[in-house]
């Protein structure tokens, strides 16, 4: 299946063009999600896509699966309910950096801890785009935002490290420049039995790029190319050369840790056996 056929198959008819601004990376990330589902040939009825609120979370409405555009920060709790109630569904969460790590931060770490089989794709554009450019917990220190006119003084989350520390069992990162890698990582995340995080570094040319003089959409994509380092190379990089750069690829993966819904099925067997 070529890309055009994938778009025709997995997007709801008549819903394109999408609402995202010119050059927004959300379309690339969403395309990578669709490519991953196509590669795995998942039946559409067996996929649930749950999003929160914000620019990236509009993705669910375009996709022809069982879809929920939930509430701000709450995509993961909704998804937890869907997955636990019907574990046969492949549950994919599409969320943004503000949605997942600020208002939804508590839900995020607890879903990691439970190791529930969700595939969470965080569209990280470093800013609140829908509301016009306010800082998020993933806005890099020093960057400008409409609510940080003098520059962001707070340190930003390293989300992949946070996920790992909280108990996620598959943690990866790619960028919209590395679109092929991104869809490959989403494939691995969906295949992984347990909580998967894929951080998709994306560009918001309008609300982040302009304020921070990053250039246009193409320049922001080139920035990703020039600052992302594949993990194998990253591991060999001396500390001083890591400054300002970030690793991409599979950053952490562990097999064999009990997945939550499987653990619950064992609990049911125990509860019923004890009768």
């Amino acid at each position: 299946m070529n890309m055009e056929e994938m778009i025709n198959k997995y997007f709801r008819p008549g819903r394109l063009p999408h609402i995202w601004c010119p050059g927004c990376g959300n379309g690339v990330v969403t395309g990578c999600v669709v490519k991953a589902i196509a590669k795995l040939d998942l039946p559409k009825d067996d996929v649930a896509v749950i999003s929160g609120i914000g620019c990236s979370s509009r993705a669910s409405g375009y996709l022809d699966f069982n879809t929920v555009h939930s509430a701000h920060g709450r995509a993961i709790p909704f998804a937890t309910g869907v997955k636990l109630a019907d574990p046969k569904l492949n549950v994919i969460v599409l969320t943004g950096d503000g949605d997942a790590t600020a208002i939804g931060g508590n839900h995020f770490i607890h879903a990691c801890r439970r190791n529930i089989d969700l595939t969470v794709v965080v569209y990280n554009n470093s800013i609140y785009g829908m509301t016009g450019g306010q800082y998020s917990p993933m806005t890099p220190t020093g960057s400008k935002a409409t609510t940080a006119p003098y520059g962001m003084i707070e340190p930003d989350f390293n989300l992949t490290e946070l996920a790992r520390a909280a108990g996620a069992t598959f943690v990866a990162r790619a960028t919209t420049f590395h679109a092929q890698m991104l869809s490959d990582l989403i494939v691995k995340g969906i295949q992984h039995k347990g909580f998967s995080l894929i951080e998709a570094v994306s560009a918001c040319p309008i609300s982040f790029g302009r304020q921070n003089k990053m250039g246009g959409p193409a320049e922001m994509m080139m920035w990703q190319r020039d600052h992302a380092v594949p993990i194998a190379a990253w591991d060999k990089l001396p500390e001083e050369k890591k400054e300002g750069k970030f690793p991409i690829g599979v950053l952490y993966e562990v097999e064999g840790r009990k997945e939550y819904t499987e653990a619950y099925d064992e609990l049911i067997a125990m509860a019923q056996g004890g009768k």
Binding site: S70, P77, T80, G81, K83, A85, N106, H107, Y264
Partner: peptide, 22 residues
């Protein structure tokens, strides 16, 4: 299934999600 969520908001989100599965 029973799940003790991390807070009350999450509990509401989870029951909405579960209701969607019928």
């Amino acid at each position: 299934k029973f799940i003790q969520m991390e807070d009350e908001i999450a509990s509401m989100g989870a029951v909405i999600g579960a209701s969607l599965t019928g």
